[in-house]
Simulated scan of single mutants.
Amino acid sequence: MANPSLITRDTDKIAEPVGNVYEAVTIISKRARQVSTKVKEELSQKLAEFASSVDNLEEVFENREQIEISKFYERMPKPTTVATEEYIEGKVMFRKPDIE
């Protein structure tokens, strides 16, 4: 059985803004990379607060907070889903270089 969170997309609708489904996928993938990088930086900054070179009993309790932060980020929508939604809603800015 397919994952219920999967959405079938109309490729014609995706290709409409640029006229080519492959260009659209390229734009979406570049945006997904930007989203992924931003989320990864946020997560790294939050987890850096817990970085310690000494293991002790107190750290075990602090790890619970670290685990909760990690679980929050795991439950977030995937970057490709975010980028696709933004593209379909017209929120992604892109430009084509002039062909000479």
Results as ranks from 00 to 15, higher is better:
Met1Leu: 10
Met1Pro: 07
Ala2Trp: 03
Ala2His: 07
Ala2Cys: 02
Asn3Asp: 15
Asn3Val: 00
Leu6Thr: 07
Leu6Val: 03
Thr8Phe: 08
Thr8Gly: 07
Thr8Tyr: 08
Arg9Val: 10
Asp10Val: 00
Thr11Gly: 04
Thr11Trp: 02
Lys13Arg: 08
Lys13Cys: 04
Ile14Gly: 03
Ala15Asn: 03
Ala15His: 04
Pro17Asn: 06
Val18Asp: 00
Gly19Asp: 07
Gly19Cys: 09
Gly19Ser: 06
Asn20Val: 01
Asn20Glu: 08
Tyr22Ser: 05
Tyr22Val: 01
Tyr22Leu: 08
Tyr22Gly: 03
Ala24Pro: 03
Ala24Ile: 09
Ala24Lys: 03
Val25Pro: 03
Thr26Met: 04
Ile27Met: 01
Ile28His: 04
Ile28Glu: 03
Ser29Met: 02
Ser29Gly: 01
Arg31Gly: 04
Ala32Glu: 06
Ala32Cys: 08
Arg33Gln: 13
Val35Trp: 05
Ser36Cys: 09
Ser36Asp: 08
Ser36Leu: 12
Ser36Met: 11
Thr37Gln: 13
Thr37Val: 08
Lys38Cys: 12
Lys38Asn: 14
Lys40Pro: 05
Lys40Phe: 05
Lys40Asn: 11
Glu41Pro: 00
Glu42Phe: 01
Leu43Glu: 05
Leu43Cys: 08
Leu43Gln: 07
Leu43Pro: 01
Ser44Gly: 02
Ser44Tyr: 01
Ser44Ala: 15
Gln45Lys: 15
Lys46Tyr: 06
Lys46Phe: 10
Lys46Pro: 00
Leu47Cys: 14
Ala48Gln: 12
Ala48Leu: 12
Ala48Pro: 00
Glu49Leu: 15
Phe50Met: 14
Phe50Asn: 08
Ala51Glu: 14
Ser52Phe: 12
Asn56Ala: 14
Glu58Ile: 10
Glu58Gly: 15
Val60Asp: 10
Val60Ile: 13
Glu62His: 14
Asn63Glu: 15
Arg64Phe: 13
Glu65Ala: 15
Gln66Asp: 05
Glu68Gly: 07
Ile69Arg: 09
Ile69Lys: 06
Ile69Met: 12
Ile69Trp: 05
Ser70Gln: 14
Ser70His: 07
Ser70Phe: 11
Lys71Pro: 04
Tyr73Lys: 10
Tyr73His: 13
Glu74Gly: 11
Glu74Gln: 15
Arg75Tyr: 03
Arg75Glu: 10
Pro77Tyr: 09
Lys78Pro: 04
Lys78Gln: 07
Pro79Arg: 06
Pro79Gln: 02
Thr80Asp: 08
Thr81Asn: 10
Thr81Ala: 14
Ala83Val: 08
Ala83Gly: 08
Ala83Asp: 03
Thr84Cys: 05
Glu85Pro: 00
Glu86Ala: 09
Tyr87His: 02
Tyr87Asp: 02
Ile88Met: 09
Gly90Phe: 09
Lys91Cys: 00
Lys91Trp: 01
Val92Arg: 00
Val92Thr: 12
Val92Tyr: 00
Arg95Lys: 09
Lys96His: 07
Lys96Phe: 10
Lys96Glu: 11
Pro97Leu: 06
Asp98Lys: 09
Ile99Phe: 00
Glu100Lys: 05
Glu100Val: 00
